[in-house]
């Protein structure tokens, strides 16, 4: 049971809003020391895992120069002005369409983008162009709601339509695991049983983004007021 001390430390650290990096480091070191590794061995382990997983941050670091250059020259303003011409568009509909599109493409194993390459340069300015928040600090709550939901659209679209047609990540892991455990499963069945949830998230998205639009409408000051 004492092995769980690291998890407890992490949970307590998050609850008290201690710097997340520090919490993660302390949780890892505590768990490792309890398991009998020396401090130097743990540093070597952290170094090794860190280097192996550098690629997790690659999409952000390589993409930010592109976004930065274009934003300096009005990318967000241009995307927003395109959306203002589309009368039927609202922030919620933009998020919903992006989530569905993200889901459909990840179904065939295509990774359309991520928070750095799609959400910040395109989805957020489109949503904010469709439902413009008030200027300055008055628009902050609306802006925050729109952005958080744009990020959610990316994650939900990404997660729940994983390789239903072309198996890449998760399904290979599941099949591999069952094979090692000596249980026979067909790839076709794994794909099939992902379909109901993939359809359901579209419905859930419709509900959440409609709520977002309703909230944004309520935040808006009345005309002439």
């Amino acid at each position: 049971m004492i092995k769980l001390l690291g998890i407890l430390l992490v949970a307590v650290g998050f609850a008290f809003r201690v710097n997340t990096l520090l919490v993660v480091l302390v949780g890892g070191v505590a768990t490792g020391l309890i398991a009998g590794f020396s401090f130097n061995e743990l540093m070597a382990m952290i170094g090794q895992f860190f280097v192996e997983q550098r690629s997790l941050t690659l999409p952000v670091i390589l993409m930010v120069p592109v976004i930065g250059l274009l934003e300096k020259h009005g990318l967000q303003e241009h995307v927003a002005s395109l959306m203002r011409r589309t009368r039927a568009a609202t922030a919620g509909r933009v998020a919903w369409i992006y989530q569905v599109l993200r889901g459909l493409t990840s179904m065939v194993g295509i990774n359309l983008g991520n928070h750095a390459s799609m959400v910040r340069p395109l989805v957020v300015p489109m949503a904010e162009g469709a439902s413009p928040p008030a200027a300055g600090e008055a628009g902050d709550p609306a802006r925050a709601a729109i952005r958080a939901h744009a990020a959610a659209a990316e994650n939900v679209g990404n997660f729940f339509s994983d390789d239903i047609i072309v198996a890449v990540g998760a399904l290979l892991l599941i099949k591999g695991f069952f094979e090692t455990a000596g249980v026979e499963v067909a790839m076709r069945d794994l794909k099939l049983w992902g379909v109901p949830t993939a359809l359901w998230v579209i419905v859930v998205g419709g509900w959440r983004y409609r709520r977002l639009d309703a909230r944004l409408a309520a935040m808006k000051p009345k005309d002439g007021a």
């Binding site: 092995k3 949780g27 382990m45 192996e52 997983q53 550098r54």
Partner: peptide, 16 residues
């Protein structure tokens, strides 16, 4: 993200 991967790796090695 890579720090959390390291934490997960340590958890796995410690048998959590």
């Amino acid at each position: 993200p890579p720090m959390l991967a390291a934490l997960g790796g340590i958890f796995a090695k410690a048998g959590v």
